[in-house]
Amino acid sequence: MTDNPAEVVESPRSPRRSRRRWRRMGIVFTIMALLFGVPWWTLLASGAAWPAPAVATGTLLFAAAFAALPALMAFGHGRRHLDWAAALGDALLGAAWVLFVWSVLGQLLRLALLVAGVDDPARSRLVAGAVVAVVAILLVWGHFEAMRVPRVKEVDVAVDGLGRGLDGLRVAVITDTHYGPIDRARWSAAVVARVNDLSADVVCHVGDIADGTVDVREAQASPLASARATLARVYVTGNHEYFSEAQGWLDYMESIGWTALHNRHLVIDRGGDRLVIAGVDDATAEASGLRGHGADLDAALAGADPGLPVLLLAHQPKQVVHAVRAGVALQISGHTHGGQIWPFNFLVRLEQPVVHGLSRHGERTRLYTSRGTGFWGPPFRVFAPSEISLLTLRHA
């Protein structure tokens, strides 16, 4: 007998499960064929009439990359968790995405050259050269943007109900640090140093702290212990914590002096006025099956004075629908990375109400969505710079 009806209906070898697996594999194969096939055609087979040895060599390189990507991803992000494989696989994925995008856009140049009367093979060779040059520049620049210490983005936010004693409260926001297969311990220390230079009243980490467990990523996360704030240091989980060890990260942040807002709140006081700072688990927490986890704004605000303004930390912008219903004055989120590698921001927008910046929702709720402080996966940021956000709260 079993408590899971699905196990009765579908065994691991059931035809239905097998069909789903083959369907998923077919989708992945199709995506990869496009990801590598379009650049191959643009650079090698579209009419450029390169010498046969050049075409053969280029084709072998594309074939090797096509075969290497799933293998590296399996070794890096599968059960073995080999950091070197994850780093190489992520970099290859990012490079393939940028090359695909600009190979597609290169067809606009092809059309313009056709209209201008430029014939093949010169036309196709000009397109191939332009695509390679643009991609090389974007990957070098994008890697620099991903690895540098983020610039500080300062934003004034009018908060409904904020008392005059709290006018000018400075909230420093870091999020999506994604400590992972590339060792960024020095980067982490530099980020904390820049945050400390801001002399903020409140410092927030809004989730996706790392990809991996505390034991594996502690060396990169440990500089967070030295982050300074005059009133509070607060943290909530993101979706990536639920891929590894969410409770472990909550416990770790508490152990280094941060307040983990695991569906709870605290109240800060300045100049005789008070502000509720609440936090909820990520939107994926309940589906993770981890006992006691799941975004619960009612629990987070339980016992709070309903007359006080609320600043809510929630990792995903789409959680703002609950904030609006609860009359939250300001929600701070991350998760989107601003798209990270253009034009991925358009795909992010299909799932989230906002990709980055300050927005208003409902009659009184404002949402600030950070582009993120680090990066996930491919070590590139293209037209989506990272940031340390400094929000100055203003009496509305």
Rank of each mutant, 00 (worst) to 15 (best):
D3N: 10
D3M: 07
D3W: 09
V8G: 15
R13P: 05
R13A: 11
R17V: 09
R21C: 07
W22N: 09
G26I: 02
T30Y: 13
M32I: 03
G37D: 06
W41E: 15
W41G: 05
S46M: 15
P53F: 08
A54D: 13
V55L: 10
G58V: 15
G58T: 15
G58H: 12
T59W: 14
L61R: 15
L61F: 11
F66E: 09
A71P: 14
R80T: 14
A85I: 08
L88R: 03
L92K: 03
L92H: 06
L92I: 11
W102K: 11
G106S: 06
L109S: 15
L109N: 07
L109Q: 02
A112Q: 04
A112F: 02
L113E: 04
V115N: 06
S124C: 11
R125C: 11
V127G: 12
G129I: 04
A136T: 11
L138T: 02
V140M: 09
W141H: 13
V149D: 10
P150Q: 10
E154Y: 14
E154S: 15
D160K: 04
L162G: 04
L162E: 00
R164C: 10
L166F: 05
L169M: 09
R170L: 12
A172V: 06
V173A: 07
I174R: 00
P181N: 09
R194K: 06
D197W: 03
S199T: 15
A200S: 14
D201P: 04
V202G: 06
V203P: 05
V206D: 00
D211N: 15
V214G: 12
V216A: 15
E218A: 03
S222P: 07
L224K: 01
R228N: 10
Y235I: 00
H240W: 02
Y242G: 07
F243T: 01
S244Q: 10
S244N: 14
Q247V: 14
L250G: 10
M253W: 01
S255Q: 03
G257V: 06
N263R: 03
N263H: 05
R264P: 13
R264Q: 05
R264S: 12
R264T: 04
L275V: 07
I277Q: 08
G279V: 00
G279P: 04
V280G: 08
A285Y: 06
G289N: 07
G289H: 14
G289A: 08
G292R: 08
G294W: 01
L297G: 03
L301I: 00
A302R: 08
G303D: 07
L308T: 13
L311W: 00
Q316D: 04
Q316E: 14
V321W: 07
R325W: 15
A326H: 05
L330A: 02
S333M: 04
G334W: 00
T336Y: 03
H337Y: 07
H337S: 02
Q340F: 12
I341Y: 00
Q352E: 15
H356W: 06
S359W: 03
Y368F: 14
G372S: 06
T373W: 00
G374K: 00
F375N: 04
F380R: 06
V382A: 03
F383P: 05
L390K: 07
